[in-house]
Design a protein around this nucleic acid. Sequence first.
RNA 1: GGGCAGUUAGCUCAGCGGUAGAGCGGCUCGUUUACACCGAGUUGGUCGGGGGUUCGAUUCCCUCACUGCCCA
Length: 919
Amino acid sequence: MSELPKTYEPQAIEEKWYAQWLADGCFDAHPERVSPSRPAYSIVIPPPNVTGVLTLGHVLNNTIQDILARRARMLGKEVLWLPGTDHAGIATQTVVERTLKKSGAIRHRDDLGREKFLEKVWEWKEKHGGIIIQQLKKLGASCDWKRERFTMDPEYSACVQQVFADLFRKGAIYRGKRMVNWCPVSRTALSDEEVVMKSQSGALTHFRVEIAERPGTFLTIATTRPETIPGDTAIAVNPNDPRYQEYIGLHAVRPLPRELPQAERLVPIIADTHVEFGFGTGVLKVTPAHDKADFEIGQRHGLAAVDIMHPDGTMNALAGADLAGLDRFEARKVAVALLTELGLLDKEEPHQNNVGYSERADVPVEPRLSSQWFLRYPATEASREVVRSGKMRFFPERWSKVYEHWMENLQDWCISRQLWWGHRIPVWYFRGTDAEAAHKAVGHAVPPEAVRQLEDGSIAYCGLEAPADLAQWEQDGDVLDTWFSSWLWPFATMGWPENTQTLKAFYPTTDLVTGPDIIFFWVARMIMAGFEYMGERPFDNVYFTGIIRDKQGRKMSKSLGNSPDPLDLIAKFGADALRFGVMRSAPLGQDVLFDEKNVELGRNFCTKLWNAARFRQMQAGSPEAEIRSELLTTDDKWILLRLDTAILEVSTALDEYRFSDAAQTLYRFFWSEYCDWYVEAAKASLNSGNEGIRENTLAVMDFVLAHALRLFHPFLPFITEELWHGLGFHQDLPEEQGGRSLMQAPWPKPLGADFHAHYGLLPEDEARAQARFDVVQAGRGLRRDFNLPSNKRVPFVLQATAPLSEHDLEVIRILLNAESLQNADDAWSPSRGTPSSLTPLGNLYLPLDGLVDVAAERERLGKEITKIEQELVKVRAKLSSETFVSGAPANVVAEHRQRESDWNARLGEIRRIAEALAG
RNA sequence: GGGCAGUUAGCUCAGCGGUAGAGCGGCUCGUUUACACCGAGUUGGUCGGGGGUUCGAUUCCCUCACUGCCCA
């Protein structure tokens, strides 16, 4: 084994090991190896957008998955972590279209036409599509890359089409003219989930309409959308509103378009209980074509829906000469001006309201009446039950309530998109009106339910195979919502609809790790698809991460420029450092405030680990020699007990998905316990000149390090692998159990009763070691109080109350950096004013001949006396309370009595010293 | 309007019925043969306000306030 360099240089080492793992097939899943003794463990990656780049959100998400996968391997499971990417319909199409526009190649995608445009998107995908995958590899993700999938792979597309056709034939998919969320920029319909509500300050326009039957009488209407007045087909009031009852059934004169004769501008005044008394004036303009609630009112009252806009959000001819051609927001201003001109404007007042925005294009969506494909969700009951019963568990649990609430209020899913990039809808419309003729015209045998008459009277065929004679048919031009393909991810990636060995072995998957922001988009829909097509839940557990924010708590966003590039962080600090830093600050169920300091801490920790290993290496000696129980020192026993505790704590934390707790424990154990105390104490053994003790200490160190590296490996895969080999721990191990790679070594088990018995580890060993550490801390405190620099070697005297071995004294001496440590008997008495401190092992003195600052020591003792007296006041107050003594459990009272007597003894001792000082 | 989180040291958070903790930061000392990406010491808190339950509340209950998120 070559000597480890002084500092850990992650870059070269990370690349080396990642390549090695790939070459050794360490990440490959073998379904045929699954057996009762080798259970399956599987995760499907939440597929990132194919054109995406790695963000800190991905880092959090994928590090967690990697930790789970790596630990599962070490626990002896057959692991499949299945990777892939999502074609991300709107997102990708928008990016490519924008780029083409920027380069001046096109003004709109229509300039290229569907086929040419799609060619460009595929080109783009080939060029940029692999980036995020490469970045995940840099992070150390142990995915089975041979199984990488893309939601537009031919086999995957076939799954999507098949599911569509199946749901069509079951009647769960229908086409209808409905109010949908329309994005005027992308010019497509969106699902409700793709609309985000934003609070906005706008204006509430109050304007008057004249009652046709009572000239000179006006009603005042308050609206946020005056530009839609030309589309109004009624005025509505609440039937129970006494202010307006007399007008119900009369007509109002709609002011716009003003060029129309009054007769063509009359709209009925109707009564509808959905009109709010309190909003505005209580009089509502009803625009069925441009508002969801108005559409419903229109349905109830048989009103016409007059669409006054083009798909791009500009006003059309029906809006009237004044508004036609204007953008909807420009038209809003013009409409107000027209109302003013007509003398109908009452007032405009500032108004806060919520407006739905297109998630992708970030513009207000336009409620629009259009013909789209909708899905009535399948398998809803099983999907609800599986979570309700706890058979599928959510972490944190509270998300199950959010899920339940959404499932309870399911709205049909608008699945068609007026885009080109995506899965083309497998529906053809018959150029004719005779259903029977249509069935024959398909040209090949299809079941009767594959051909259906739609709401609008047209006849549609749905199937995987196109009709034979395309002249009689026209294919639907739309594509499917991206999520209509992602919801099949857990099984479509494993070879469905064939019942493959992979599916048999790995479905349902074990864990899903994702953000709560896509619980509806993705998680809930996958559950329904899983039940519908696999007859079984897609996963056992769903872990919801927090959202990554900056240190001020703001969401990461490009426009704020507050999202650091993970690749920069990896280059600067190393992948392990990034992983550890993020995991240490990502508690279950809470958002993560990202601060580069955390990554720095991760880097520092890696360096610490590295140097601790170097220290061990510099001591030479063969790795992992046998530990001899008869040679164990107090410190050896202590660190073995602490290791045992760490193994238990880390394992439990990981079992419960408490990753930050696991990281904290590892940090504390390795840095505070192993490095700060054990290694320093062990220097006494290493320098003792006793070869046996020295060898045994090294054996203990190796034992601890070999365990620690395994515990750390899921968090810090690269550095632990390097050290595993660098320290020679792989030697003498079977190939598949750590001989080749640490990632195949078994996960540490708690040491167990036999181990404790064999090495004579007793609970009191911990207390004994701790007592010596208390002596050391007391001594360091004395040094500090008397301004003795930590490098000044001074003598200490310990008046021990119990026998102490030479070795233990030497350990204390070294940790105190003392010139000498005298173990004095009762007869010894310090000279007047000698600083002292009471420790669990007796009085510790710091004799400072000629240097004693009596005043300083008196002051110090005075402070301590005050502190003890305060504690005594507190504990005595409790003990003197009759209600406490009689009401509290006996053990608690006893504990308080003990506390009182301890403090009392201590006070007496310190007073005695103080008096001696006063002399 | 409904729901869910959160409010503990300067910052980030743990504790969740019986002596207020960690990391970071600050301050002081230190180049003691693994590590200055370090070591030692030290400074920081009437645990958001108000009620209640209890012998005892940061911890349980109610209520209010504020912050953030989700759904209308």
